[in-house]
Design a protein around this nucleic acid. Structure first.
Lengths: 241, 241
DNA sequence: AACTTTTGACTGACTGGTCAGCCATTTTTC
DNA sequence: GAAAAATGGCTGACCAGTCAGTCAAAAGTT
């Protein structure tokens, strides 16, 4: 990381990829190929040879980068999840923003990622294989779920204080917030072919239901500075299909 | 099935199981063993020999009853789901009962079945393998989900009319009702070991949230005969843990 | 700079083991 | 004792992981 390659022409972007560069690129290619293959066939039914072929690499090369098939799989999950965790943590939870909007800002991209990317299938993979890799489930719980749960708890507590929420249900069971996203992700990957689902419609409907603006009960109407944008009253009515 | 065994002593309950009886018993034993094995290891990693051993049967016997491993698997899913469908359809949907109670009557046993039985794992199996057996997903959709969805739709329409529900969200997206159960089932099988979840508490909290008895709006107070038991006001408040 | 030596990433044929499905033989049933 | 059912050893395919050999890039030499 000191001075790059010794004498790079600087005009041509990548004239001679150094050995290290090529190696890193290969490793990435292998992980990408592994993601595709494992998603398609699951752990047991995936052949290391096929991963190699898809990565345009010889089988042996995989064993230079990963101890064995299982290590490849776990590394794959870890790195892919890592990317998603990073994305999630980049979502700024603005103080004073309505909880509903925050949830939407997190949920909609995930729903989208299930259609365009591999998020849904990754989730399916986790569910499918966590029986055989229990510490992956534990890793997932600690790195993702536990954090998400406590973040939701915090949001819910705030929302109750601000009058956006009525009961303490979400604080006690933050899982409830994740439920529609999980179900949508699963539906998309499993049944969408023959029973398409309007995912974002579902999420909207769900949030309309949970964040019903009932008697706003306006506990402390002291011009809460945090409630600056309490306006933005989206219609929130449901047009029937 | 005509006249039982020719001369049964009538005192001993099962002195000579007929050939057909024994055969059926074996088939059942194989399916039971297959359920256990497939749930534990998934389709690809399960060995037919192990299923045979667990069923106290020789490997060849399995091939007398099922064309091959895949047929065994599909038959297993079909028959096990069949049992669950039967259980579900036995739930009488009483006219005039509150939707909340109906949902509870269906959801609680399912949650229980995830802990005591193999419902959660069966679901995991479906999710895991439906990639490789797409027509199983389709079967599941048509035999279970489509029916459930339309039943929920019907309930929701009724509930809106009776004033139990405010919006039409559940009618448009019946999946929303299934979401907490699905998530609970998954959580139970994946994370319960190191992050136990109060499943029924979650379901209660969820229903409290969705069926909030807001302004009862009492559209037609014409002494609705269907609302006979509109009393039964459970506290529905949440004691904080 | 040209030429030589060293390094280690990469390859793919090979091995040892596993397992689905078959079928010749044995056991059970009637 | 004939027919049906059950058995379990066998086979051929398949595949994870290995390793001796190759070669391009890096380091060293003149």
């Amino acid at each position: 990381m000191s001075g790059d390659a010794p004498a790079r022409p600087a005009t041509a972007p990548r004239p001679q990829p150094s050995r290290a560069e090529k190696s890193a690129a290969r490793r990435a290619a292998i992980l990408k190929a592994a993601l595709d293959e494992f998603c398609e066939k699951g752990f047991a039914a995936t052949r290391v040879e096929d991963v190699a072929a898809r990565a345009r690499v010889a089988k042996g090369t995989i064993y230079l980068n990963f101890k064995d098939k299982q290590a490849l799989f776990e590394e794959l999950i870890r790195s892919t999840l890592g990317a998603h965790i990073a994305r999630l943590e980049a979502v700024r939870i603005e103080n004073g923003q309505r909880m509903r909007d925050t949830i939407e800002a997190i949920g909609l991209p995930m729903i989208e990622a299930a259609r365009t990317g591999r998020l849904g299938e990754l989730m399916r993979l986790m569910i499918a294989e966590s029986g055989r890799f229990p510490h992956l489930a534990e890793f997932y719980y600690h790195e993702v779920l536990a954090r998400a749960m406590s973040a939701i708890r915090r949001l819910a507590r705030e929302a109750v204080r601000e009058g956006e929420l009525a009961g303490e249900q979400l604080e006690r069971f933050p899982q409830i917030i994740g439920a529609p996203v999980v179900v949508t992700l699963l539906w998309t990957t499993l049944f969408d072919k023959f029973a398409p689902l309007d995912s974002r419609g579902l999420l909207q409907a769900y949030l309309d239901l949970v964040f019903r603006q009932d008697a706003p009960k306006d506990k402390h109407p002291k011009g809460t500075r945090s409630g600056s944008r309490r306006i933005e009253s989206r219609p929130s009515t449901v047009r029937n299909s």
